[in-house]
Design a protein around this nucleic acid. Sequence first.
DNA 1: AGCACGCCGACT
DNA 2: GTCGGCGTGCTC
Length: 679
Amino acid sequence: MEPIYLTIALDTPLDRLFDYRWLPADGCPVPEIGQIALVPFGRQEIAGLIVGLSHQTEIPADKIKTVLAVRHQCPALSPQWIDLCRFAADYYQRPLGEVAIPALPKNLRVPKATSLDRNLKKLAKLQLAHEHDATPNQEPTLNAEQQAAVETIASTTGFASYLLYGVTGSGKTEVYLQTAARVLATNSQAQILILVPEINLTPQLEGNIRQRFSGIQIATLHSGMAEGERLLHWLAAHTGQARIILGTRLAILSSLPHLKMIVIDEEHDPSYKQQEGLRYSARDLAVWRAHQLGIPVVLGSATPSLETWQHAKAGRYRKLELRQRAVQSAVLPVVKIVNTEREKPSEGLTQRLVTAIRLRLEKGEQSLLFLNRRGYAPVIHCDACGWISNCTRCTAHLVMHKLDKKLRCHHCSFEQRIPRACPTCGNVDLQPLGRGTQRLEEGLKVLFPDARVFRIDADSTRLKGSAEAAFDTVHRGEVDILIGTQMVAKGHDFKNLTLVAALNPDSALFSQDFRASERLFAQLMQVAGRAGRAGQREGGNPSEVLIQTRYPDHPLYHALMAHEYPRFADDLLEERQQAAMPPFIYQALLRAEARELETAIAFLQTASQCEPVHAHAGITMNDPIPMTMVRVHNVERAQLLVESNSRPALQAFLKNWIAELRSMKVRVKWGVEIDPVDI
DNA sequence: AGCACGCCGACT
DNA sequence: GTCGGCGTGCTC
């Protein structure tokens, strides 16, 4: 019998596939495309994805190696799934294996199959334990707009993108769930994928889904899961057993053989963009996947990304608007601006804010102070000689953390004890500059000695599970004043919260990053939404949102006050169009890093002038520039922005360009990012 | 990217 | 004498 050769995709930056010989053994079936194979690669043994079978190979016989094992226990990945990976690989300009392999659970990729076998047995038990009845438990009555949205989405045939646009409290989640129920009811195998920005911050949604659909299997997929558990849930999705899959961005690359609808909650959220390795946008891949399968995709947000907003305006996405607040008696919070030029804050708080907090304390209601800066003070300095606490490895300040008496760099792992005296002049009077959440907490405890002040940020919730415990404390009403970073902006509704204040949001207004104001608006809107949901008691006043700012006339704050996202978004889009910026043009970023900035810049300079640049039309090549934070961990970085008004033109150029750069063999680390969001 | 090989510098 | 720095070469 002539040998069979398998073409296998491996997780390596080498832009090619690898052929292996397969030898039949007793009782071993011939491998199939889509199965996982264990192969020798160099001196390692790694897992690969079988993407081709053949009776011949161009690889010389002395080079070819033999497959070690094929994971027959695991059903093959479908051609559609491989095509999804292939699309992502092409679009983001990476080899197929670098997309497909990391998308699989680690325990599927290890030499031993023990975890796989164990979890397959567990999965079989789960199969038996479920009723497989997708009928939802008691569904709340929808208002007319919600009902219309459900009808529209559920009656979709083929591909359609929907923007479900509605403020916090307008009942988007209920639309997702009742639409899901309808889709599940029409097809006894149908699977629904629901993506959320961060699953740990939205346990309420997971609880709701499990409660509503208690008869079917629900899988969750996110990066915080243990490997065994991750494999179990992935297999539940892959075998079609799980009917609803709730996950973070990584779930968009999971295998879902009967996928019939995709929901992306808070579609504008930056965490849908992977920021390391394969820098994909889960939202964009979701739309592609829906198109590939001919199914609806629902993008929900109160502050849609400008990309999505523009798609809706152009009619490519259908806009479904929820204008009413679905929660009975809930009204929009009143947004007020406090001018900090006129009214100077003390300890970060204006008198008006202090008064507002005091009023809440008297009424037994909660206040939330939003300050997006953790630590005690962002920097310390010496009055005598001007020394400031800089990180020696990064272009960044060392942040003062008073509780553990440390200066800490938030960009590398560096930390040191807070020096007793100035390292340059010996002055013992070092001063903290600015204010982080810890310092705010300290000040509030002095100002309101009888109030229960509580802080939620990455430092206070470092331990696994402690974030959830912290939120529970707030929910139980054991907190009067809550201080939080952006962590508190997502997911949680605080029933007794009637005051939200943003202490110092201005820095984003003048950021180098043109997307900063779009993000700030979304963030403020989201924090504001934490209040005034179920919290409105009969006849009570609406919740209050106070924005402390030096720029009270900024259009962003005016739009926020007027609850006018559409006009704000339209204005931003107008600006973007005038200035030829996304979403009206397409971008890619070539980043380079080296010991010396000059080396990185020189590489980018060469790259910006190499042959493919001249061979392609319709490409705008900008100048190489140092990154805003030039040095991180003793590495200096620079970037080169490439633009085009044609996506295919940009794609074609990048393909040739990257091939050329690869052949250059330089001593800098570089990489290309498509559709960058942090510039 | 890993991983090994290989050839020069300061430690027990 | 060896441990270990990172240059360079290879992966079916």
